[in-house]
Nucleic acid binder design. Structure first.
Lengths: 183, 183
DNA sequence: TGCACCTTTTAGTTCTGATTGAAAATTGTA
DNA sequence: TACAATTTTCAATCAGAACTAAAAGGTGCA
């Protein structure tokens, strides 16, 4: 099938819409809200710096909603504000590098979600420590629970330290991992 | 602080409650619903085989809700049904191994979430392929979009293949990873 | 400085998905 | 087989998150 030039724009837009919808579905996986994801998807796929109005029109989202979600995206570091000369509007542009986006999201989720969990677990652990339970603490029930908390803690601190290591040097690791995957 | 035997049970319960609450907070990270997570948390931390009534009472959740969430947990493979002799009730018991639980959750999320995304991306890619765009396809816009879709696809297939590899042999990998983390 | 243009905030509304309770279905036992 | 115990299903309800529209707040230019 050959496309005339006039067909190109709507077809491109159709692909972009599919992509935005895709990003919407990915929201859960990335742990961000669907609308935030859609906006980011649009910015990523077009590669352009868009204004709030552009986004409102294209995705049929209210101004306030776009505003709030854009600030969150900027806060996450996935999107940058850009100023155009002779234009008072602000424009927004997505990062381009997939690895960088992934690292940003992952490191923030670690900080917001994983770290507090590990802290709470440590607190649970203390409460079950033999010295805080008195001499009878050799009983079955607390010992078993302590064991399970320890298993979990061990696993999560492992994940934590691997993640940390990755964030600190993902540029270098990237090649290594890509090689590893091809093997 | 020394604890008398009588103090032990309520204190243990208090720690368990904290743990269930923690699991509740982890739900988002694991991609399961909070109530499902709380039920699983209770089963994991107590290490016991509990009946629906036990769970209803302990977590203050309705019977229907417990029933639905337990089936989902069984479906995910995180919880097993167990039968006790001379008792018509069914009892439910969590897996104990943290790595196994993680692998189960991750492999299912991959199948439910990641795989469809990769498929959709491939479809987007085809629609932007030069041959489907006609002779004028060398234009800037589609080329740039195709590039970004390819970047993404490359990243996601990489994640996919690493995950696959992990699921197939996490028992072996486990030791290697633990060593790596200590380095 | 004041105005016109944009963005942010917020109070109220809408929507989605979770939860309940009770009826229906199932299961095991006498 | 019948019945009592238990689980599942499902329509109605509820709660919280997301969204909107409009008012308030900034910002840069004349």
């Amino acid at each position: 099938m050959k496309a005339r030039a006039a067909d190109l724009a709507p077809r491109l837009q159709h692909v972009e819409d599919q992509f935005v919808e895709l990003w919407n579905n990915m929201a859960n996986l990335w742990g961000i809200s669907p609308t935030m994801a859609r906006i980011h998807g649009l910015l990523y796929i077009t590669g352009a710096a868009l204004s709030m109005d552009d986004i409102m029109d294209r995705l049929a989202i209210s101004r306030g909603n776009v505003s709030m979600n854009l600030s969150k995206l900027v806060e996450w570091g996935l999107v940058r504000r850009v100023h155009k000369k002779r234009d008072r509007k602000e424009y927004y542009e997505s990062l381009h590098d997939v690895w960088e986006m992934f690292t940003l999201v992952a490191s923030q989720r670690k900080r917001r979600e994983l770290d507090p969990i590990i802290n709470t677990l440590r607190r649970c652990k203390e409460q079950l420590a033999p010295e805080s339970l008195g001499p009878k603490a050799a009983e079955e029930a607390p010992r078993a629970r302590l064991q399970r908390i320890n298993d979990l803690l061990k696993f999560l601190t492992l994940v934590d330290s691997l993640a940390q290591r990755f964030f600190e040097s993902h540029r270098g690791l990237r090649e290594a991992i890509e090689l590893l995957a091809q093997e």
